[in-house]
Design a protein around this nucleic acid. Structure first.
Lengths: 106, 106
DNA sequence: ATAATACGTAACCAAGTGGATACGTATTAT
DNA sequence: ATAATACGTATCCACTTGGTTACGTATTAT
């Protein structure tokens, strides 16, 4: 069999470090493509492709503004990540708790 | 240029849906490989490869137990995901707040 | 001792990914 | 009108990924 059907979830969007950095930047407010590209020592088309992925997975939105395109953070899909990670919280809290009591009993 | 240096973060570990499912399963307790493989309509070696990725990124640990290898969830690295997503929480809460007041004012 | 079980790994392959350069188009500046 | 700017897209390429089958090895069962 060639390959299973692709993962089109938000997890793919945040799998790439450049895309995560773009999202981090957009937390400070919308930005045009050139400003984003300037920060990442990659060609502008490369950033455009990353933005396309983020757009298609609905993590950002695009708004034409003159000849610029302002990209804006769309946090709704990211909530899925938080929701997925949530039940694991108990586990690392338990681990830290064990470590704490271990240290306290030495 | 061929490719940038690879992302070896936990985000890569959770990028694949099969690997996320494995982690979800391991939340209920450690499991041997065969049990994991039985659940995913993939060959056992495929699951072994996924487990290797999870192992190398320290999201699971392996423990030999007779001829079985028990895989166990190691939540510490997953905390990085929760930490990364945390500042975005404000954004989707703001969005939901806006939606709420929008609906209330109609 | 021999067979069966539970794995990991090697080799291979199709498809996906992330990058670059080249080019086209809409908008603004001159 | 012409040039410059700010993009998106097409094409190409090396590398990665995720799957398979074939095989080797340690452990347990007979």
């Amino acid at each position: 069999m060639p390959q299973a059907d692709l993962d089109r979830s938000v997890f793919r969007a945040i799998a790439d470090p450049t895309r995560r950095a773009i999202l981090d930047r957009l937390r400070q407010g919308p930005a045009p493509v050139n400003e984003l590209a300037a920060a990442f020592s990659q060609s502008r088309p490369a950033i455009s492709k990353h933005l396309r992925v983020l757009r298609e997975l609905r993590v950002v939105s695009e708004q034409k503004h003159g000849r610029e395109r302002l990209y804006r953070l769309e946090p709704a899909e990211l909530k899925n990540v938080a929701d997925w990670i949530l039940p694991y919280r108990d586990f690392w809290q338990a681990s830290l708790g064990n470590l704490k009591s271990y240290l306290e009993n030495e």
